[in-house]
Simulated scan of single mutants.
Amino acid sequence: MNATDPIDRNRQIPLGVANGVAAGAVWGLVFLAPQLLKDFSAAQVSAGRYLAYGLIAALLLAPRWKAVAAMIGGAEWRALAGLSLLGNILYYLFLANAVWWAGGAAAALIVGLVPVVVSVAGTRFAGAIRFRRLAGPLALCLLGVVLVGWEALANDKTAHDPLTRAAGLACAFGALLSWTVYSVWNTRWLERRPDISGHDWSLLTGVTTGALALVLAVPAFLAPGQGGHGETDWGLFLGVSAGIAILASILGNGFWNRASRLLPLTLAGQMIVFETLFALLYGFVWEKRLPTGLEWIAIASLIAGVVWCARVHRAKGH
């Protein structure tokens, strides 16, 4: 436990799980953005979200900028740049293109493996729970992801040519890899710098992401054929971008950093399941329907896997 987080061990896992659930609840909203902004390109949606993230983060940090910046050296800025690129810009570009080129079903099935891959990666950390003790919880989570993907594939209306679909699948695996590396790397830096709060680390990530998004914004908005939107479209674009930046990026990343500090990576990885669960919930509300039988089983499997994983870690005394 970090010296700056004097939380009783009996409260550490429940509090960490609560922060993980909160992160998933706001991250799930991200999957509604493409639905609301379907007339804009993936690059425009991504650039808009992260420009807003950078601007709002900079405004929140402004009163304390000198004090916070004094704590950050060259190594930290380089890490923040890499984390911003992997966990934000590249991940979201990969995800959006995977959805459009390979279909939401295939993208969800591959990207949904993030919790399992991150948890497996966490077993390699010193003092981590052995993989065999996590095999059961991970199998349940994997079953839930497969069932979600199976149900979505059965209703997938994507009709792209094989080459486009292959490119979409490659993007889905790119999203899986980029977020896995981000999660492990971010956890390492949070452990290395316990004197920086998770909220401030999120805001610093936002400032860095906003700077990188400026590079993305030039081709996204100025390239030929990227215009043709009316005032109402742009008003919706700005509102959704700001809303997602505040909820998913600033609050969501802050919750996630807190969870990452309180939980071992083998359990923190499972918290990403809640992004899938809340994305499903919001999707049901958007489509005005109840889950199908397979979706109910998938939801139960995902929740049971996380609860089982938490019990394993509490029994070990993490």
Rank of each mutant, 00 (worst) to 15 (best):
L281E: 07
S197M: 06
V68I: 15
Y50I: 08
A25E: 03
L190E: 04
R124W: 14
L277W: 04
A57G: 07
W256M: 10
A304K: 01
A213M: 07
A167T: 01
L140D: 04
R130H: 13
A166Y: 00
I110P: 08
R9D: 14
T232M: 02
T276S: 15
R11V: 12
A62Y: 05
A213R: 04
T205L: 15
A159K: 09
K288D: 11
A128V: 06
G317Y: 05
H318V: 12
W296K: 04
H160M: 11
A47V: 09
A96S: 08
V184Y: 00
A139V: 10
A108D: 01
A268W: 02
W77L: 15
C171K: 01
Q35A: 15
A152K: 14
S249F: 06
A315T: 03
W27V: 02
F221N: 08
L294K: 06
A310Y: 04
C309V: 00
V111T: 12
A128D: 08
L90K: 02
E191C: 06
L277A: 13
A106C: 04
R192M: 05
A67R: 14
P14Q: 12
Y182H: 10
H318C: 09
L204N: 03
L277V: 15
M71H: 02
L163H: 04
A242V: 02
A211F: 03
T232G: 01
S119Q: 05
G206L: 08
G228I: 06
S46K: 00
A135F: 10
N155W: 02
A18K: 01
T292K: 03
A170P: 06
I110V: 15
I89C: 07
V307K: 00
T4I: 04
L51V: 15
L169Q: 00
Y182I: 01
A223Y: 03
A62C: 12
G252F: 03
L265S: 12
V306R: 00
G206W: 01
R9K: 14
E275Q: 14
R9A: 15
G210Q: 10
H199Y: 11
R192C: 05
A25P: 08
G228Q: 07
I299M: 10
E295L: 12
G103S: 11
R188E: 10
L61R: 08
G269F: 09
I89M: 08
R124N: 05
G235I: 04
L216D: 04
H318W: 12
